[in-house]
Amino acid sequence: MKVLIVGGFLGSGKTSLVEEIARYIAGRRKNPECIEVVIIENEIGDISIDEPFLKTTGVEIKNLFAGCACCTLSGEAADLLNMLKKDLNPQWVILELSGAALPVNITQMTEKLQIETHICVLVDASRWERIHIPLGKLLRDQLEMADIVLLNKIDLLKEEDIEVIGQSIKNKNQYMRIKQSSLLRTLEEGLIKEILGEGDGNEDAEESFTDA
């Protein structure tokens, strides 16, 4: 069982990405007996507006509501991951964190459980200028340890603004691999594989930002 942590601030497009990746993994199912993917939805509120939408993927969904998986619900999150590993052992668990959660805290948990973990953090490019100062620490901490950062909603910005925002994010971590994505088109298979750590490993971080 591998875990894909999908983090990023509220409204950055995490649920749409989770839906797309879950459909991709489920679509390449080789053994119908085997569970390919389970989604864990984490919300700080008491209900998830996204849950009924995600259910349309046909994928099994587990909920962690009314708290944050990285802190107030960390015990529940660890128990759930442990249970999934023992009982269902799916190929992938996609953990969609609440918009206030820090992915790095979850990796400490999955390390203890000896589960291979990948982190994808989304950034809403269209709101970066507005939120990166008042929420600077949270955003910086969310980006820490990300294997890949998706600069999302670039269709809402001009090309020159995208470059500026990309550099502003890169200034927080020069080794960060940044890719661009848009609301208007689905992700290419190559990018999904890269998010899942199944790429060929030759991607250059600097080129990734400009070529995506």
Partner: peptide
């Protein structure tokens, strides 16, 4: 304030409609 997310859904038998706004 800063909008985290503002979302709504209307669930129907067999379908769901979702509304969201961040700006």
């Amino acid at each position: 304030g800063i909008i985290g997310h503002i979302k709504a859904s209307i669930e129907y038998p067999g379908s769901v409609k979702m509304y969201s706004i961040t700006e």
